[in-house]
């Protein structure tokens, strides 16, 4: 991996793992560590991190959100950078913490300082560490879904595509409506499952229509939703199988684990 010179030769990066990666797909966390180390970073993982607070924030519970935001700020403000394998949690820290804590000047300042040094994983590799290619191979046709927070809050669009295009054997095809929400929406999919399902059904049809054998994205929430729908369509309607992975797994060449939602029996439930 090529990493042009950077201000701090070996920056200390705090990895904010996110609750969904911690719980559902730890392999994404290890892929992130591997990518960051290859990009010349020293990675540390504060053990007492939990959640960024977004579920409470989007449920109108500002008091609990503030507590969790302050915990996270205190845990991560000592690092050169905070990196998050999620545009959604990254957007929470980068865009929403400063707004959330605006009435407490000291915390607002600390929130802004942390926000300025917080990045979503792929954009950090590309924009901050100057990574332009990754030394892995992937044989397959891949399509990419732009998760909403990463796209619209953090401006992540070209970075993952640029890195994916550098991979030998990988053919990238664009997903129609790649910028339309998959219907996950955090608590939305719990509160309004029927609307959520309609949205993910549209998304799954688009994905299948691309002919791609692999669907990638940068957020576990969207990935669980899309993988769950694609698999159910395969079981019930015989839809074409699509492997679903977090983009970091492919970039790190760590694709030994079964794809999201797939088991040892290749998913025939």
């Amino acid at each position: 991996m090529n990493s042009p010179s950077s201000p701090s030769p070996r920056p200390r990066v705090g990895l904010f793992v996110t609750c969904l990666v911690d719980f559902f797909r730890p392999s994404v966390g290890f892929a992130a560590v591997s990518l960051l180390e290859a990009a010349g970073c020293t990675v540390e993982i504060p053990e007492t991190q939990t959640c960024c607070g977004q579920p409470a924030y989007n449920s109108g519970d500002r008091a609990d959100t503030k507590d969790l935001a302050k915990r996270t700020i205190a845990l991560f403000e000592g690092f050169d950078y905070t990196v998050v394998p999620s545009g959604s949690c990254g957007g929470m820290i980068k865009e929403h913490y400063p707004e959330l804590l605006r009435d407490e000047p000291d915390w607002a300042r600390r929130a802004r300082q942390l926000a300025a040094r917080t990045y979503e994983l792929v954009s950090f590799l590309h924009d901050v560490r100057g990574v332009r290619n990754v030394p892995v191979r992937y044989d397959g046709t891949v399509t990419y879904h732009d998760s909403c927070s990463g796209l619209r809050e953090l401006g992540i669009k070209e970075q993952p595509r640029a890195l994916l295009r550098s991979i030998p054997g990988l053919k990238l095809v664009e997903l129609p409506s790649a910028e339309v929400c998959c219907g996950f929406g955090g608590t939305f999919c719990v509160k309004y499952p029927e609307i959520s399902d309609k949205m993910v059904a549209n998304k799954a049809a688009d994905v299948i229509g691309t002919g791609a054998d692999t669907l990638l994205a940068g957020d576990m929430g969207c990935l669980l939703n899309m993988a769950g729908k694609l698999k159910r369509l395969r079981i019930e309607e015989g839809a074409r199988p699509v492997r679903v992975r977090h983009v970091a797994e492919v970039l790190a060449g760590m694709t030994d684990e079964p794809p999201i939602g797939e088991g040892q029996d290749k998913g025939r439930a």
């Binding site: 999919c189 719990v190 769950g228 698999k231 684990e257």
Partner: peptide
């Protein structure tokens, strides 16, 4: 199977979608 066809606390989800299973150990 890699996923759940029905999960008691997530029936809204599993009515129409599989719920992908965790890999097992947390990160």
């Amino acid at each position: 199977h890699g996923s759940f066809f029905n999960l008691p606390l997530a029936t809204g989800w599993t009515a129409t979608r599989e719920m992908p299973a965790p890999q097992g150990k947390t990160f």
